[in-house]
Design a protein around this nucleic acid. Structure first.
Ligand code: NAD
Ligand code: NAD
Lengths: 230, 230
DNA sequence: CCCACTTTGTGCGTGCTTTCACAAGCACGT
DNA sequence: ACGTGCTTGTGAAAGCACGCACAAAGTGGG
């Protein structure tokens, strides 16, 4: 049993950096809308709510796209980050579970403002199947495999009750979808090579409660910073 | 080294641990519903999708609540985690922006399954104000301060368009709310001592896209693990 | 009472993240 | 051409987080 090189540093952009790139991208787009042509790391970091050294190091992972003494060209940087994130291509998204949340997601216009296209809506309830939501017909969950194939779905969104989520996830995987966004409050079990991310309202509230209680108790400044980012 | 310095471990549970406690809690509740009385770190870790050593270390921050050779008593551990997270008290939540998302949130039954009570819904649109959503009357945003005061709101949820989010956040802060959950895709600026957390669908999708592209490109196993947890 | 067995709690090495601090690089004015 | 001033890109240090591996602590059988 040889423990072989756990050295996947290859072209690796740190995960923490990847998670911040979309934030930078949004800040840059806001600047662009306002007509700004170039921006310093200091200013962009301010807009993104991070430390400027962190911003510079993050961007340095993509390449040297800044000009010393000047800053970064907004348009060029937007392009580079978009390319790195894979937003220059189109991503086809399928949403399963067209209930309260699924409908909100389907109706959400500025979906990703770029690159993401909702290709299909699926549900199991006969009452829901066949209806039109956000200009799309809700298809029956049984046609998931077909829909994935014909629409070229590459990202699956799960908005079903917790009990159904694992089943839906497995079917997504079976159908070849390797990126899943899960809104159901369960731990999904998927094979290696499949990427699952979760969004969990309840967890966020509980974390807020923890900090709030901490603040109320000893009232030492035990919590992180108070100045958090979005 | 010194083995037993009387170390009151009160201060400082690592942030990473805090973020996982709600996941453990949910797994424990599922076990309890199934009638399980005790559970080993191995089993609980499996249910929570984490490494068992990590689970044990996380729990050790709360105290020594396990029994060697046996495991953890489910009910007792649920109580301890709940207490640590502040779920033994009630939290009053106000949601601002009763659009697609706000309505979904308001109608979401298993809100936190414990501790969180939606106390008020607020909106600026005359069309929406006055309507009844999830058995609550939608109030006008102008009464935010009054509502916070009379209902004892301690957590504010922002589900307005991006452009309105900062204004709403400031009013929350002004009214004394120090915990904010933000769904709008903007970086909120708040004073120290105010805790803001964000939920951002678009960012999650972009992170998924990044990994998906990475997988498609070099196809070396450059991404983290593929086996992610929920 | 002792021993075999199970499982916790944690010391420790490793690698990732953040932050500081500054040399290097570029623009621009003279 | 060259100095001045500003901003980037990055070593280096410090701080966290993770997970292995094992001693300590408890259980149960003989
Ligand atoms: N509504 C919210 O604000 C909110 C917030 C956080 C988390 N969540 C989670 O999101 C999920 C959806 O919440 P919701 O409020 O929209 O619930 P919902 O009950 O309104 O909708 C669930 C939908 O999923 C469909 N469904 C059930 N089983 C299915 C299956 N096997 N295949 C396909 N479709 C199936 C149902 O027919 C229904 O239309 C839940 O897991 C919930 O815990 C919701
Ligand atoms: N719908 C989704 O699935 C989704 C997903 C991710 C993020 N978001 C974000 O969540 C937010 C809400 O999305 P939505 O789809 O519900 O939008 P929406 O337009 O349906 O609803 C927004 C609501 O906020 C109200 N509002 C506007 N300004 C206000 C103010 N100053 N005070 C009080 N209320 C105000 C509007 O009247 C409206 O009812 C947006 O920022 C959006 O980007 C939505």
């Amino acid at each position: 049993m040889t423990t072989r090189p756990p050295r996947p540093r290859e072209r690796g952009i740190p995960e923490a950096t990847v998670a911040r790139l979309p934030v930078y991208l949004r800040a840059l787009q806001a600047l662009q809308d306002r007509g700004t042509a170039t921006v310093s790391s200091e200013a962009l970091a301010g807009a993104a709510g991070v430390n400027s050294a962190k911003l510079r190091k993050d961007l340095s992972h993509l390449g040297s796209y800044g000009t010393r003494g000047v800053g970064y060209e907004v348009e060029y940087l937007i392009y580079q980050i978009s390319r790195e994130l894979g937003l220059t291509q189109d991503w086809s998204v399928a949403i399963v579970g067209i209930g309260n949340l699924g409908r909100a997601l389907a109706n959400y216009g500025g979906f990703g403002t770029r690159g993401f296209r909702i290709a299909a809506l699926l549900d199991a309830d006969p009452e829901v199947v066949g209806r039109s939501v956000a200009s799309l017909d809700v298809r029956h969950i049984d046609s998931l495999e077909e829909v994935v194939r014909t629409k070229g779905v590459s990202i699956g969104v799960i908005a079903t009750p917790a009990g159904s989520a694992q089943g839906v996830a497995s079917r997504f995987v079976e159908a070849g979808v390797t990126s899943i966004l899960n809104f159901a409050p369960v731990v999904l079990n998927v094979p290696d090579g499949v990427d699952v991310r979760k969004v969990d309202l309840s967890i966020e509230l509980q974390i807020l409660a923890f900090h709030a209680q901490r603040r109320a108790d000893g009232d030492g400044q035990t919590h992180r910073s108070g100045l958090e980012v979005t």
